[in-house]
């Protein structure tokens, strides 16, 4: 794996530079895909967008997509259990755990596939051979109820949330369920030590399973500040009229790609390729900014009203470390919070 400790921002900034035809584009047999007629997609994509992708694909090609939607870690768990049981049910899988995707690539579980527009995806968000390709980029940050937290009280950086004045107001997600959180907790604990989470626990932080649940806690006012949660949900609720504000901590946000892979030996290989190619096509990619998130493609604009990734301080993520430690990260997190 080349240079996996990389700063995604750098790639984004360099975007203009490397667009080229270094890749030979892999062909897709559309007829064979249509003959297969269906495929199974395991994904942690937000439900509404996921369903839209499914509907668009069905409309475009007449191929049925059976979507299974859960948290990224839950998806991975189920996928692995099914592999153990000798059953490959999924054709395509999208999670938000690049470390796991890299590990599974090395185990030879994925098909190498470089579809059209492969070069439009930043290097850091894909495997050079195309074993996994980002579907979207996830901004993991802090957001809060702006009607209940006065501007003066807003945390400026990550360690501010440990202030006792936020006691009982914080919510975060569980890395055992949400794969995005594996990277966040991994890097936070690596950079700041586990004491960060012990203090978070001492500040009576609520742990929920998913990012959507964290947003839900804010919507209902059960908690006021989400720590290390997916910004696109906040943006989505903001569009519906909820007073939720995204913060960009001075010490950096996390930007984590959601890799999509084709499963080796899956029942519908051609439909899977077609779907994976479709995933990075402009119509699909534009769904993400429309829902408040960031597309994987460099040539798609950031969501309306949100800053470009270029303008943010981004915390580098050591995916080798995350991959090696992910079991321990989840376990340690649970030990602290249970």
């Amino acid at each position: 794996m080349v240079q996996r400790t990389l700063v995604l921002a750098a790639a984004v900034i360099a975007a203009g530079g490397f667009v080229g035809s270094a890749y030979a584009q892999d062909a897709v047999d559309v007829d064979a895909a249509k003959k297969e007629g269906r495929l199974v997609w395991y994904t942690s994509t937000p439900i509404a967008i996921g369903q839209k992708i499914v509907d668009m694909f069905e409309k475009e090609y007449g191929i049925k997509v059976e979507m299974f939607r859960s948290g990224g870690s839950a998806i991975l768990r189920r996928f692995h259990q099914e592999m153990d049981a000798g059953r490959v049910a999924a054709d395509v899988m999208t999670t938000s755990d690049p470390a796991a995707a890299a590990a599974m690539t090395r185990k030879g579980l994925f098909v190498a596939f470089r579809p059209k527009d492969f070069e439009q995806i930043p290097e850091a968000a894909k495997d050079p051979q195309g074993h996994y390709i980002a579907q979207r980029l996830n901004l993991m940050t802090i957001y809060l109820r702006e009607d209940k937290v006065p501007p003066a009280d807003e945390p400026k950086n990550w360690s501010d949330v440990l202030d006792p004045k936020y006691k009982g107001k914080l919510v975060t997600t569980d890395p055992s369920f949400t794969s995005l959180q594996v990277s966040v907790v991994g890097m936070m604990s690596k950079n700041r030590g586990w004491s960060f989470f012990e203090k978070l626990r001492a500040n009576d932080t609520m742990v929920v399973q998913s990012n959507q649940q964290a947003t839900d806690m804010l919507k209902r006012g059960e908690r006021l500040i989400a720590v290390g949660a997916l910004d696109s949900y906040a943006a989505d609720e903001r569009m519906k009229g909820h007073p939720i504000k995204t913060l960009y901590p001075a010490d950096g946000v996390f930007v984590i790609p959601s890799p999509t892979s084709i499963i080796k030996g899956s029942p519908n290989p051609n439909a899977a390729r077609l779907f994976a190619a479709f995933m990075i096509s402009p119509p699909v990619q534009k769904l993400f900014p429309a829902g408040g998130g960031y597309a994987a493609r460099l040539d798609v604009e950031p969501p309306a009203g949100a800053p470009s990734l270029k303008d943010m301080k981004i915390v580098p993520i050591d995916y080798d470390y995350i991959e090696k430690e992910s079991g321990r990260i989840k376990r340690r997190f649970n030990e602290i919070f249970q």
Binding site: E66, F68, R69, S70, A74, Q209, S210, Q213
Partner: peptide, 16 residues
């Protein structure tokens, strides 16, 4: 995925 049931779907939606 293919064998998801009603109760699991409720739980799954709640969980997410």
């Amino acid at each position: 995925s293919g064998s998801i049931t009603l109760a699991v779907a409720v739980f799954n939606l709640y969980e997410t």
